[in-house]
Amino acid sequence: MNYNQDEFLICTIASLLETSRHVAVGMASPFPGSAALLVREETKNQIDGLRLSMIGGDANNPFTDGGRELFDCSGQGRIDTFFLGGVQIDGQANINLVGTGDYPKTDRRFPGSFGSAYMYFVVPKVILFRPEHTRRVFVPEVDFISAPGTSEDGVYRPGGPHALVTELCLMMFNRERKRFQLTSVHPGHTVEEIQDNTGFDFDIPETVPETLGPTDQRLRLLRTQISPEIAKTYPEFVARVFETTV
């Protein structure tokens, strides 16, 4: 079956969630939300199937104790997977959600750090999702550290970066080496193209496989059952992504 890039990215994120037990999805996160809904549906008959808590709207949002409950749950270790992005991301997986230039008088101001300065520390598996793969985003050093990718010994840190998904590739973060390693390259792209568009050094194994595309079964599920579910939270996203394929 043919698929568009957005469907491919959703399924690439989904492939990272297969061992997750409780995935939380933050504000304005339709791709991670779709991926988590997909894996929840696929594992719904398993006793340890994926549990999903989305805070972007009322649908699939189980919280009843206000905005703090997601953070309180995470601090207790009840949530094992979360997603963050970045206006800038560097090779140590530091993320910047605040703006570019000299803080506080930024050249270009973005919304702010949201819950990143906390969630990155306490959620074991944080997946970084940033489709735009350019040197503007993937910089040698971020201009503002909303949340650091690694911490000194002695800092309480059960959480941190796990993987990075972009429109070109999948990278995994090695916490010991404090570096990303290229894991797979999306179809139609090359290792050289990724190096050219990345402003930091990362590890490249001798052979780098192509990222696997979605199976027909997964695509069918995404289009038939997941798209109406994600539309409850992100109607405009669904109209855009699935209009060309259904």
Binding site: V98, Y103, A117, F121, A147, S151, V155
Partner: peptide, 9 residues
Amino acid sequence: LRGLIGSDV
């Protein structure tokens, strides 16, 4: 509060 250590926040 947990977290925050090492951030520019």
